[in-house]
Design a protein around this nucleic acid. Structure first.
Length: 759
DNA sequence: TCACAGCTAA
């Protein structure tokens, strides 16, 4: 049996551990407490898989305090607090008397309940044991109240360096920078752990400069210190610095461990550089690094972000039963990143330990892939099931989805939800609110949010300027740009796109020209805005000249602006020129065909209209179909061409029929511009159909009260006949109809549109 | 005699 002792000495990896385990079983010793405790100790040290470790524990018929201690330590290290508490209960049931160390572990796991446990420990006379005392204080500092921890700290007559370190980390944990620094200064003897805690603390506050200062000033550095600094860089997006420091560490002759690798791998993920990923994979292979849980999950994420979804999935599958929520969430976002929402949802539905990040990944996945309605549906499920509590990340996605849909009532509900749950919003949270209100057509609220912000960044200004632009408030947008310059915030490319668009919508030719001239290196998008501005005020030939003099190749947006202007001013020559360029640049974009055919239609050139349609058919160009939304009763109702899925479909179609008859009676005859045709009459015709807008308006008419404003939201350019229908309904029904088309707001009343260039 | 404090993935 003596060889067992020698084997047990060199257990340096999982393989050795399993060999030792096999030998112990061979000698029928696995029921013995001594050997079980040995094995469990190795499990903790080597981060063995929990099911394997549990198997060893369960094979002991009468575990003693040593065995319990080791299994508790294992679970404690995993952060499996519930298992610690359950096992502690079992220990008491078995009549095994816990010692101070067991209590020290337990205190860490019970979280806020440590307060009761603390009283119990005092009664038992364990209060003055320095390990118990430190554990209690540490737990208060981590999970409870840092003030209580400080009181305990102050009451100690002899403080060890461990107590000081616990207290300093406790302060950092709650973001109390000043208190942490104060203690650091007061401390009689600092050790490497103290210094490392300072590095981590500053990294947590995103103050990498100070973190690095402490790192450089440390009298001695351990591997953990290096890891702290590298991880600090990695977690704050300083990938270059993290990788650089990693090389420095290797050059200093230090052997990286798994924690180091995790930081390096995650830096590589954020770079999304497939070459770097490959060289890293090779390096791990060559060095035969043992890949633990964290490393494998980090690798999974790296593969997903560096373009190899298949490899990521392979790692994910290989994690087997040991997968935790982080791996699941990484895989879910990997799918949403490439737009594969089906696979993402499949994973989301099959995972059982969903947390807030899982929900966020899925909600953001829908929101960022144009499925705002699904994003809101899932959010509502999240709130009703109370599976996880939404956080700021959730709310930003939800707010953005409300904006895309123009769901104002829902958006207001979300704002209420945020204040009721006392959620704090960061600058980007407020920015998303400005965006939402702008998109919902409520500039008053957008401006209110903007005013109330304590700090604003360039995105805040851009959100408001873009909103003002969409509402045609050109002068205000220009003023806002001047104001941001005054406050020392430099306009960026988005700002200029916003102001130029605003000038264009408000017809501010001279100011637009001036601003365009002031841009240092105008990009192609800025030229497109300028062409749009010139075109809308009727200077089409000047717009054409500007295009010819562009220093770069014009993109679709440039010619799109010219085409749109040609439509407004019925310039067939320039319209044809722009359209022909567009048919080359973006042959599958149906909108260009629609616009050209509308120019012909406005000149009653029906043969040409037919010719464009034929070209479209023959080119296999499918009209892009989009959803229209109407918010009613706190819900979004969505419609698509020929839709019959809505609950009130029958009523909606009946109303459409009635409207058609009414229009005929008022003399609006269906002419060749297909004003009143719908899908039943024109099944084979791709240019027309029962458009989503028609269905949406009919639905809104059905449910709205007399004189209520009807709001229809649609982001794509809508067709000729739909515009005509909207105009006529607004005249016949004497209703105001607001349509968000092409991200602009159009208010129809009495058959007239608020903007002068609407058809 | 030891254990207690610092670093790890979305």
């Amino acid at each position: 049996m003596s060889h067992l002792f020698t084997t047990s000495l060199k257990v340096s990896n999982l393989h050795h551990l399993k060999q030792l385990h096999a030998q112990i079983i061979h000698h029928h010793l696995h029921h013995h407490n001594h050997w079980a405790a040995q094995l469990l100790g190795h499990c903790t040290r080597l981060h063995a898989p929990p099911p394997y470790t549990r198997l060893i524990f369960d094979s002991v018929p009468h575990p003693n305090v040593l065995v319990f201690k080791n299994i508790l330590k294992f679970y404690s290290q995993l952060g499996a607090h519930n298992d610690v508490i359950t096992l502690f209960g079992q220990m008491q049931k078995n009549g095994v008397r816990p010692d101070v160390y067991v209590y020290a572990i337990l205190v860490k796991s019970v979280g806020k309940a440590a307060i009761e446990l603390h009283a119990h420990l005092l009664k038992m006379g364990y209060g003055c044991d320095r390990y118990v005392r430190n554990s209690v204080m540490d737990t208060y500092a981590k999970y409870g109240s840092v003030e209580v921890a400080r009181r305990l700290f102050d009451e100690m007559c002899e403080k060890t360096v461990v107590d000081w370190n616990s207290m300093i980390s406790g302060y950092w944990n709650w973001g109390y920078e000043d208190e942490a620094c104060q203690l650091f200064e007061l401390m009689p003897h600092r050790n490497v752990i103290t210094w490392t805690a300072m590095v981590t603390g500053y990294s947590k506050m995103k103050d990498l400069k100070s973190a690095r200062r402490f790192f450089d000033e440390m009298p001695e550095k351990s591997l953990v210190s290096w890891n702290a600094m590298i991880s600090g860089y990695a977690q704050n997006g300083f990938a270059e610095e993290a990788i650089g420091l990693f090389h420095e560490m290797v050059n200093a002759g230090l052997q990286p461990n798994e924690t180091t690798w995790v930081a390096v791998i995650s830096s590589c993920s954020s770079r999304s550089d497939p070459c770097l990923a490959e060289s890293l994979t090779k390096m791990l292979d060559e060095k035969c690094i043992h890949l633990n849980y964290f490393v494998k999950t980090a690798l999974l994420d790296m593969y997903a972000k560096c373009g190899s979804l298949e490899t990521a999935r392979k790692v994910f599958n290989e994690l087997g039963v040991h997968k935790n929520s982080v791996a699941w969430n990484a895989m879910i976002s990997a799918y949403t990143r490439v737009g594969d929402l089906t696979s993402a949802r499949e994973l989301f539905d099959t995972m059982h330990d969903r947390n807030v990040v899982s929900w966020n990944s899925m909600v953001a996945g829908y929101a960022q892939n144009g499925q705002s309605a699904m994003a809101l549906e899932l959010f509502q499920e999240m709130v009703t099931t109370k599976d996880s509590k939404p956080d700021e990340v959730t709310m930003v996605s939800v707010i953005s989805a409300c904006g895309h849909l123009g769901a104002l009532k829902l958006g207001n509900w979300v704002v209420n939800f945020i204040s009721e749950n006392q959620m704090k919003l960061s600058i980007s949270g407020y920015n998303s609110l400005i965006f939402m209100y702008s998109k919902c057509g409520s500039m008053k609220d957008a401006q209110k949010v903007f005013q109330e912000m304590a700090m604003r960044d360039v995105v805040s200004y851009n959100a408001l300027i873009t909103g003002l632009a969409a509402h045609g408030n050109g002068t205000e947008a220009v003023e806002l740009m001047l104001k941001m310059k005054d406050e020392g915030i430099e306009p960026d490319r988005v700002t200029y796109i916003g102001v130029l668009t605003a000038c264009s919508h408000a017809g501010l030719l001279e100011q637009g020209r001036e601003i365009f001239e002031s841009i240092k290196d105008p990009e192609v998008d800025h030229y497109a805005c300028m062409v749009d501005l010139l075109g809308r005020v009727g200077k089409l030939d000047e717009a054409k000249t500007l295009i010819e003099r562009m220093p770069m190749n014009p993109h679709g947006g440039v010619y799109g602006s010219l085409l749109n202007a040609s439509r407004i001013y019925k310039r067939v020559d320039l319209g044809e020129l722009a359209a022909n360029k567009l048919f080359e640049l973006e042959p599958q974009n149906s909108g260009n065909y629609v616009l050209l055919s509308n120019i012909y239609a406005s000149k009653a050139r029906w043969e040409d209209v037919e010719r464009v349609r034929k070209a479209m058919r023959e080119g296999g160009v499918k009209k892009t179909i989009g959803w229209s939304f109407v918010e009613y009763g706190g819900k979004m109702h969505k419609f698509i061409v020929g839709d019959r899925s809505h609950r009130q479909s029958d009523d909606i179609y009946r109303l459409l029929g009635e409207l058609r008859n009414k229009m005929r009676a008022f003399g609006y005859v269906a002419d060749k511009s297909c004003v009143l045709r719908d899908v039943e009459e024109e099944e084979k015709e791709e240019m027309v159909g029962t458009h989503s807008e028609k269905l949406a308006i009919a639905f809104a008419l059905l449910v709205s009260e007399e004189k209520e404003v009807i709001r229809v939201v649609k982001n794509l350019r809508v067709c000729w006949d739909c515009h005509m229908v909207i105009k006529m309904i607004s005249k016949l029904e004497r209703r105001e109809i607001v349509v968000r088309d092409n991200n602009r707001f159009h208010c129809f009343s009495n058959g007239l549109c608020s903007c002068n260039d609407y058809w």
